[in-house]
């Protein structure tokens, strides 16, 4: 009987995918885990209990990350959807789309470094509003380009039909366009949330260390060689996207399929 190698490779792949999550949780529960120990001498909730204390500032960072990401995701998705309609029905659609690709393709950290002068002049340097606006500038082109496939002939004919039947612009959006684009709007919301949630370089430049999101915290802990708190911050950074991915996959992708 010939043994198949596929189950072995697949099991290995699953272990390799799950290993980082298990390792980071273990590191966040550990202390005094030094070379050459293969396992930590202490495993417990000591580090996690400190989340609630103001000493680490992790809870504040979590809250400010959440506030920034939700704001960026909501504003980018809504504005991206509404503005993309005008862009993709425009006679110069190709040129406008190309212009949207420039900020999308440029490294956010370089973009932020070149924009920082303007943020400083406008009083948006080192505060949450500045970080939200800067992240919105990079998330908006993504949202706009994301909806490019939505505005096709079929949707245009639905819009024309509503107009023929006497519906106004407001009714077109509420009764036709939003219900049609519901799944895409949700995915775009998740994606722009993740763009903001994962952002480090741009936030460090515009926030100048005063706006301490979770990614900034992770890097601070790495620089301090405090790997246990670093791992803890990583866990806080990873788990919300996993929950989002789960809902994304379970409810949104299924409906789209």
């Amino acid at each position: 009987m010939k043994l198949s190698w596929k189950p072995f490779v697949l099991s290995l792949a699953v272990l390799l995918i799950l290993f980082p999550f298990a390792y980071l949780v273990l590191l966040s529960l550990a202390s005094d885990w030094r070379f050459p120990d293969l396992f930590p001498s202490y495993i417990g909730l000591k580090n996690w209990s400190k989340i609630l204390s103001s000493e680490t500032g992790l809870l504040t960072s979590f809250a400010s990350s959440l506030l920034i990401s939700l704001s960026v995701a909501i504003v980018s998705t809504v504005s991206g959807f509404l503005i993309s309609r005008a862009v993709f029905y425009h006679p110069k659609k190709n040129t406008l789309t190309l212009l949207a690709y420039f900020p999308y393709i440029l490294a956010p950290v370089v973009f932020a470094a070149c924009l920082s002068f303007f943020f400083l002049k406008m009083g948006l340097f080192g505060n949450v509003m500045g970080v939200i606006i800067a992240q919105f500038i990079i998330a908006f082109p993504y949202a706009l380009l994301f909806f490019s496939s939505f505005w096709n002939k079929k949707v245009k004919s639905y819009e024309d039909l509503v107009a023929t039947l006497g519906g106004n612009r407001w009714q077109t959006y509420i009764k036709v366009l939003f219900p049609l684009a519901k799944g895409l709007l949700l995915i775009c919301f998740f994606q722009t949330f993740l763009i903001s949630w994962f952002e480090y370089g741009l936030t460090s430049i515009i926030g100048i260390g005063k706006v301490q999101t979770l990614t900034i915290k992770v890097f601070l802990f790495i620089k301090e060689a405090n790997y246990y708190y670093g791992a803890l911050s990583c866990c806080l950074l990873i788990f919300p996207p996993i929950v989002l991915l789960y809902f994304n996959k379970r409810y949104v992708f299924k409906k789209l399929a």
């Binding site: 949630w197 990614t215 992770v218 996207p241 991915l245």
Partner: peptide, 8 residues
């Protein structure tokens, strides 16, 4: 893996 940012 899509839920893991570059910094992590």
């Amino acid at each position: 893996p899509l839920a893991v940012p570059g910094i992590v």
